[in-house]
C-alpha cells in the first residue's frame, strides 16, 4: 500500500502461510515494474525474517550482496523438542547468510530499553511485523515515511495508534543501525 501510494508498481505473492498453525510462510514483495509477483531464485535484495531460523529457508531467494533483517525471536517447532531436531544457533544462522554474501542484521526480540519511543510508550513486542517493517524502512529509506504511516493506519484502523507507535520505535532503531553501520 505504501509503495502504491508512493507511485511504485507493486506485486505481492503469498502462496501459503500457516504460521498460526506452526508452519512456515513466505511472502514475495516486488516493488517496481515486473510481470510476475514471484521473485526469481537468487534475486531478492532484502530478506525480512520474523523468526530467526526461518531466514534459512529464504536464503536461496537472495542475491549475493542482499541484506537480511533477522529478528532473533525463536519459535521452536514442536518437532525440535519431540524428535530431538537441532534448532540453529545464532552464529550458525549468521554463517549461513554471510557464506552466501548476505549481510546479516540481527534485531533483538524486544526493543524495550533500546530506543526512546519504546521506553516512553511501552511498545508491544508482539507486533513483530510492524517492528520489522519500521526497522527495515528506517534503515533502507526504501519508501517515504508518510506513505508507510498512512498504510499502517489504513491497513488496521482499529490498531492504528499502537501500530504507529511501534512503527516509530522500529524506524528509530533502523535509523540508528544505519548510523552504526555506515
Amino acid at each position: 500500500m505504501a509503495a502504491e501510494e508512493a507511485g511504485e508498481e507493486v506485486r505481492v505473492l503469498s502462496r501459503v502461510s500457516l504460521a498460526r498453525l506452526g508452519g512456515s510462510g513466505m511472502c514475495h514483495i516486488r516493488i517496481g515494474p515486473s510481470a510476475s509477483a514471484a521473485i526469481p531464485v537468487g534475486e531478492a535484495d532484502i530478506l525480512l525474517a520474523l523468526e530467526m531460523s526461518e531466514v534459512l529457508r529464504a536464503i536461496p531467494m537472495a542475491r549475493h550482496g542482499a541484506v537480511a533483517f533477522v529478528n532473533t525471536y525463536r519459535r521452536l517447532p514442536i518437532a525440535t523438542g519431540v524428535a530431538g531436531l537441532h534448532y540453529p544457533t545464532r552464529s550458525e544462522v549468521e554463517e549461513a547468510l554471510t557464506s552466501r554474501g548476505i549481510t546479516c542484521i540481527f534485531v533483538p526480540e524486544s526493543l524495550a530499553g533500546l530506543v526512546e519511543d519504546a521506553i516512553e510508550h511501552d511498545i508491544d513486542d508482539a507486533r513483530i511485523n510492524i517492528i520489522m517493517l519500521g526497522i527495515f524502512c528506517g534503515y533502507t529509506r526504501l519508501l517515504p515515511r508518510p506513505s508507510l504511516e498512512k498504510a499502517v493506519t489504513e491497513r488496521l484502523p482499529h490498531f492504528a495508534v499502537e501500530n504507529l507507535r511501534t512503527f516509530a520505535a522500529g524506524w528509530s532503531y533502523g535509523e540508528r543501525l544505519t548510523h552504526s553501520t555506515s
Partner: peptide, 9 residues
C-alpha cells in the same frame, strides 16, 4: 550450511 528446522502444523 545448517538447514532450518522442520516444521509440521
Amino acid at each position: 550450511v545448517v538447514a532450518p528446522p522442520a516444521r509440521s502444523l
